[in-house]
Nucleic acid binder design. Structure first.
Length: 589
RNA sequence: GGCCUGGUAGUUCAGUUGGUUAGAACGCUAGCCUGUCACGCUAGAGGUCGAGAGUUCGAGUCUCUUCCAGGUCGCCA
């Protein structure tokens, strides 16, 4: 770089630096040529400095040849701007660099989109030219915030006695849970590694190994379809602790999340965080990740509905389901809007949406004719109905009712702008069900994972009533988003075998899949438990984005490909031969 | 795998009932301009209307197929 080496970053200087001779390196952000006077904004990671090319500049015509995104080095004297020329929108708006010497380090072709904040360019194009997209200030801020938060996390973990250990990326496939990404073995043809869905088993083995407190910022992989808040390749802050119970893990993580919220948003989080049992969260909010920043809580009207004249209601209750409702609490809706919500609810799995529009002295409702005045009165009382409210009801199996009304609640919260965006509602969900019935598998499967410990008082239900067993599992929720989850694990080999049995694994299957773990547990296992945060999703929320790609440098698109590098792609025949892989001809060939 | 939305200039978009040479803004190129900061003024270039087939005298517009992207349901221990 020689004499063109920079003496500082573009936006590090202020009015106190006026008079200094400095050299800046950066990208040409914008230029305004007034004839004999040329203004250029020079940009680097720190921000922007205005350069002025005029009489003092030795080579004005070279400056006139500058174009967007040229990389240059400029030497000149920092000068105070006249009061009339101060740009308050710019961090460095009180000064400017009066350029004397200019060196074009590298030219640039005109970029496919301009490098600016709040880009309106299609995501597809941004991702194809991600290296240009990442030049935009908001993307730089997101990734810099991410780096700062990762640093807060690492410091916190070390201050609290955690040891950072890396676990393998090439692992044994354990086909419980999400679909694995598979990597072929060259040495052992026909055998495969799997990329980790999480470091779960290895971190538990580190507890057996006596590391006591482990953490890792770990890459994880799940071969499932993408969403706005989900990538196939993602990052966890993963931790595991020995000789702890759930209280210890939650207390430690409350202190961690308080630090993170302070660092990222300057928000003061009150501890301890509120806790809701899974049951309470579902019954009040229809969700195991409730957004508590607004009301519209669900109410149970099953007891009234059981013997009412509306068969949809009464049959639902008699078939083991329930009827629950929520009120708009004053939010008014047109008939057209109500019908649209009825359609919306069907996409959430409900068969239909019953509604009552409460007006002064009368009600309008398609279900009124099925109910006696007394029944309707009881329902209105239960729902605390006032004129102006619209009441909605769903009758079905509990899971359907909760899912539908939970989604409806969020939709109404958005529609009526009830969500206070300045709030940061953090909370724990505890006492998750240990198992859930899988229609596809035709058996109960672990809701969390099969190493999660049941609540002590529920252990004896393992052989009798799986649906009622609660787990020592906890999720941490921020503004209606699950940002982390964990559990106390099973450290007793006998209990672990009972759980595998409950899941329908034979002893052979269990040992085949998890034998190395069960074997390890015979050699003295401390009680242990942990937690993992979805770092990307947490960062998305902290950055105020609704798109997880905004906090990942090089994300994948919906079909799990990378638009920039074009991965996945075909490989050479030689590579396939070495791996002993025969590729079936694709449909278009 | 299902459903919904979108694809027109480099970018963001408009394009009426199917009808003349497909437009605007920004960007780009050239010229003028010494205090701009969304600089201004003048002129100009720039289009496989995602692709293919069909209907029609005539298709950006209608039909079918297909590709790409986004959202969502399923899926995500």
């Amino acid at each position: 770089m020689g004499k063109w080496k920079r003496t500082g970053m573009c936006a590090q200087f202020g009015k106190e630096d006026a008079g200094r001779v400095v050299t800046l390196n950066g990208w040409v952000d914008s230029r305004r040529n007034l004839g004999g006077l040329l203004f250029v904004w020079l940009r680097d990671r720190s921000g922007v400095m205005q350069l002025v090319f005029g009489d003092k500049c030795k080579d004005f015509s070279l400056a006139e040849s500058l174009r967007a995104e040229y990389v240059v080095s400029v030497t000149g004297r920092l000068a105070l701007r006249d009061a009339a020329n101060v740009n308050k929108a710019l961090k460095t708006g009180e000064i400017e660099l009066v350029a004397e010497e200019l060196h074009i380090i590298s030219k640039a072709v005109t970029p496919p989109f301009s490098i600016e904040r709040d880009s309106k360019v299609k995501e597809e194009l941004r991702l194809k030219y991600r290296y240009l997209d990442l030049r935009r200030p908001d993307m730089q801020e997101n990734l810099i915030l991410r780096s700062r938060i990762a640093n807060v996390m690492r410091n916190f973990m070390h201050e609290n006695g955690f040891v950072e250990v890396e676990t393998p990326i090439l692992q044994k496939s354990t086909p419980e849970g999400a679909r694995d990404y598979i990597v072929p073995s060259r040495i052992k043809k026909g055998s495969f590694y799997a990329l980790p869905q999480s470091p779960q088993i290895f971190k538990q083995l580190l507890m057996v190994a006596g590391f006591d407190r482990y953490y890792q910022i770990a890459k994880c992989f799940r071969d499932e379809d993408l969403r706005a808040d989900r990538q196939p390749e993602f990052t966890q802050l993963d931790m595991e602790l020995s000789f702890v119970d759930a209280e210890d893990v939650m207390e430690l993580n409350e202190r961690l999340i308080r630090k993170i919220m302070k660092e990222a948003l300057d928000a003061d989080v009150q501890l301890p965080l509120p806790r809701y049992s899974y049951k309470e969260a579902m019954e009040r909010f229809g969700s195991d990740k409730p957004d508590t920043r607004f009301g519209l809580e669900l109410k149970d009207v099953s007891d009234i509905a059981r013997d009412c004249g509306f068969k949809v209601f009464s049959d639902a209750v008699k078939n083991g389901g329930s009827v629950r409702g929520l009120s708009t609490e004053g939010g008014q809706l047109s008939r057209k809007e109500i019908d649209a919500l009825g359609e919306f609810i069907k996409t959430c799995g409900a068969k239909g949406l019953a509604w009552v529009n409460v007006k002064e002295g009368e009600i309008s409702s398609p279900i009124a004719k099925f109910l006696s005045e007394e029944e309707m009165e009881k329902i209105l009382t239960r729902m605390n109905a006032k004129p102006g409210d619209v009441l909605f009801f769903v009758a079905d199996q509990p899971s359907v009712v909760f899912t539908a009304l939970g989604a409806l609640r969020l939709e109404l919260g958005r529609k009526f702008s009830l969500i206070d965006e300045s709030r940061h509602d953090l909370l724990w969900i505890t006492e998750f069900p240990m198992f859930e019935y899988s229609q596809e598998e035709g058996r109960y499967v672990a809701m969390h994972h099969p190493f999660t410990s049941p609540l002590d008082e529920d252990i004896d239900l393992l052989e009798t009533d799986l649906a009622r067993i609660r787990a020592k599992a906890y999720d941490i929720v921020l503004n209606g988003n699950e940002i982390g989850g964990g559990s106390i694990r099973i450290h007793d080999a006998v209990l672990q075998e009972r759980v595998f049995q409950a899941l329908g694994f034979s002893k052979e299957t269990a040992w085949n899949r998890f034998g190395f773990m069960m074997g390890a547990f015979q050699y003295g296992t401390p009680p242990h438990g942990g937690l993992a945060y979805g770092l990307d999703r947490l960062m998305m929320l902290l950055a105020g984005s609704r798109n997880i790609k905004d906090v990942i440098a090089f994300p994948k698109v919906q079909n799990a490909s990378c638009l920039m590098s074009d991965a996945p792609s075909e490989v050479e025949q030689k590579q396939l031969d070495e791996l002993g892989i025969l590729v079936a001809p694709s449909k278009n060939e």
